[in-house]
Amino acid sequence: MKMFMHKQKRQQGFSLIEVLITAFIVAFGVLGMAALQLKTLQISHSAYQRSIASVIATDAVERLWGNMAMDTPLTSDKLQQEWLAHWQQTATNQTLPGLNLSLINTAGTNTYVITVSWGEARFGANDVASQFSYSVDLYPSIGGP
């Protein structure tokens, strides 16, 4: 009977190694989730900045249309200066650090190239330059010259 009792050893609980391996797997999973959350925040902020850049470019198109309707239209350089001054004085300019605007008129046409650029140094040591360029054709009104 002693021989039979010896073979019936029962496990009483988890070993320390099993607990450490489980803790390591859980910690690795939580670290992965934190990295995923950080990347999501970075991409979301970048999308927000691109939306602001799109609004700034749309404002330039509206200024161009308004300029065409004026009796004495401004030159492209003067229009660009006013446009840049407006957006640099706007309180929301903090969302686009290093904002730079460019308005180029193709000579002799109503085609304009609008460029909005800014720096994204917030998420790393390297300053990443982001830029949007839009090309727009402004056609004169039917009753115009």
Rank of each mutant, 00 (worst) to 15 (best):
A23F: 15
A125K: 15
F123P: 09
S51Y: 08
S135R: 14
P140N: 08
S15M: 07
G119F: 02
T58C: 00
F24Y: 03
G32S: 06
L74F: 04
Q131S: 15
A129N: 13
V30S: 04
L101N: 07
P140Q: 12
R63V: 00
G119E: 11
Y139R: 14
A34C: 05
F28N: 02
N67A: 05
L16G: 06
I142Y: 10
F132T: 03
I17D: 04
T75H: 01
G108Y: 12
L96K: 12
M68R: 14
S51I: 00
D127C: 01
A60T: 04
W65F: 01
T58E: 12
F28I: 05
L103N: 05
G98R: 05
L38Y: 14
G13V: 01
K2F: 09
V61H: 00
L36T: 08
G119H: 09
V26N: 01
L96E: 13
K9L: 13
T106L: 14
L20R: 03
Q81K: 11
L99H: 12
N110S: 14
L96M: 07
M3L: 14
Q11T: 12
A34F: 07
V61C: 01
T75L: 08
Q89C: 10
M3K: 12
L101V: 04
G124V: 02
R10V: 09
A53H: 03
V113I: 03
E18Y: 00
M68C: 03
L16V: 13
S44K: 07
A129S: 13
T40M: 13
G98E: 05
V55T: 09
G108F: 14
S135N: 02
I114Q: 05
L138D: 11
G143P: 02
